[in-house]
Every structure is written in C-alpha cells, then in structure tokens.
Amino acid sequence: MKATYLLVAFLALASFASAYDPSPLQDFCVALPDGSIKDAVFVNGKFCKDPKLVVAEDFFKHVDPGNVVNKLGSKVTPVTVNELAGLNTLGISLARIDFGSKGLNPPHTHPRGTEVLIVIEGTLLVGFVTSNQNNTNRLFTKVLNKGDVFVFPFGLIHFQFNIGYGNALAIAALSSQNPGVITIANAVFGSTPPISPEILAKAFQVDNKVINYLQKQFWYDNN
C-alpha cells in the first residue's frame, strides 16, 4: 500500500512539473528550426543544435518598432523561442508592444506564463481580471507612466490601453520560452470553424443576431 501511495505522489509531482518550462541541464540548448530533423517528434521544447556549431547570433535578435496603423492601434512583436532560438530551455521570453494614440492591446491571456510589463514611453491604463471567486471576477487597474512596472498573474485575462496624447511603448517579460496568447474576442467570435451562435447567444445572454453580427466582423490579430 505504501508503495502505491509513493507511486501516486511521484506521478502527481511529475504531472505538476511537466506543466511548466523544464529547467536546463546544460549551459544552453539552441533550438533547431521545426522540420529540420525529418520525422522528429518533441513534446516540450525543441531539439538542440550541436553546441560546437552555436554562434553568438543564436542569442541575438533586433526588434524594430511595430506598425500601429491598424484597427487596434497597437502591435505586439514577440521574442519567444520561435523568434530567438537561444531562448530554448531558459524559461523566459519577451515582447515589444507599440501603441498608437488610443491604441489597445485587447483583453487576452497567456496560457503558459506570467507577464511583467515595464513602460518605456507614454501612459498606459492596464488591468487584469481574477478568476471566478465567490461569483465575482475582480478587476485590478492601474495607470502606468514611463518607468512603471506592473505584473499580470499567470493565465489571467489582462489588457493595456494607451491613454496618453502620443505614442507609447512597453516591454513585456514572460515566464515561459513560449507563453502563447489567446485574444479573447478573436477566440470567441473568430474561431475556425465558428462556435455555434446558439451557444454564444446563451453564454452572453444576447440575441442570436448580435452574435451573427460579431462573428461576421474581421478580428484583427495584433501579434
């Protein structure tokens, strides 16, 4: 019986550990491009480049300002393991977020990471919403100015809105090499194939015509 309990405890710990980025067991593991190994399979992370072939450029990336002339007035430029191979197994990534006047990074969530945001230029209204607790989703908001830092807890829905008079710039650091992003409106109303309007109408407690209208919109992806 004791052996059974130990096995269950071990499996539980293994399941918990596998939910997060693995800790590196070497100095670095520069990722090989997807498809560079024929018929290769991986579960969490990417295959490593031969350390003898690694060069400084594997740890470098230049990030240009994003084009904010779009429906949201913002552009997120991610720097994850998919853009910077040297991030593989390091458990971190970042993103540059450019905002035009009244630009919005709409409500979204990162399913695999906590986000820390620092404002480089401008003034942002930021916020996040807690999970369902006692039938309440509590909203936390804060106005941030140049040099201010704010954290968005793991997996919670959050947003940033430029309330200043000019453009704004922020840098986000994330606790995963590939944190992912789910933009709420895009996922709910712009999925492929679409979610049944009957389901959404009942969920949002509105008429089917409202849902049909929303599903016909072009949901811009600023990532």
Rank of each mutant, 00 (worst) to 15 (best):
M1Y: 11
A3Q: 14
A3M: 12
T4S: 12
T4Y: 11
V8S: 00
A12G: 07
A12D: 00
A12Y: 07
A14L: 14
S15H: 12
A17G: 14
A17T: 13
Y20L: 13
Y20C: 12
Y20M: 12
P22Q: 11
P22R: 11
L25P: 00
D27F: 10
F28W: 07
D34N: 15
D34K: 14
G35Y: 10
K38H: 13
D39M: 08
V43A: 10
G45P: 02
K46N: 10
F47E: 09
K49F: 05
P51T: 11
K52C: 01
L53Y: 04
D58T: 04
K61H: 11
H62A: 15
V63Q: 04
P65H: 13
N67K: 10
V68K: 00
N70S: 05
L72M: 08
S74A: 07
T77I: 13
V79N: 00
V79P: 00
T80L: 08
T80E: 01
V81P: 01
L84A: 06
G86D: 02
G86L: 05
L87R: 00
T89R: 07
L94N: 06
A95I: 02
R96P: 00
R96N: 06
R96G: 01
D98Y: 01
F99E: 01
G100F: 01
K102S: 14
G103I: 02
G103C: 05
L104I: 10
N105V: 03
T109H: 03
T109F: 09
T109K: 10
T109Y: 07
H110V: 11
H110Q: 10
P111Y: 12
G113C: 10
E115A: 12
L117I: 09
L117Y: 00
T123Q: 13
T123Y: 07
L124W: 04
L124S: 02
L124K: 03
V129I: 15
N132K: 14
N132W: 10
Q133F: 14
N135H: 13
N137P: 01
R138Q: 14
F140I: 15
F140G: 00
T141S: 10
K142Y: 06
V143W: 01
N145F: 09
G147Y: 10
D148H: 04
V149Y: 03
V149S: 04
V151W: 03
P153K: 09
L156M: 14
L156A: 08
H158V: 09
F159P: 03
F161V: 02
I163S: 05
G164M: 02
Y165D: 14
N167D: 12
A168C: 09
I171K: 03
A172N: 02
L174G: 03
S175P: 08
S176T: 12
S176F: 09
N178Q: 12
P179T: 13
V181I: 15
I182Y: 06
I184R: 00
A185I: 03
A185Q: 04
N186G: 06
N186M: 09
A187G: 05
A187S: 13
S191K: 05
P193S: 08
S196C: 12
A201G: 09
Q205A: 15
V206T: 14
V206K: 07
N208I: 15
K209D: 13
I211P: 01
L214W: 08
Q215S: 08
K216V: 02
F218K: 12
F218L: 08
W219R: 05
Y220S: 04
N222W: 01
N223K: 11
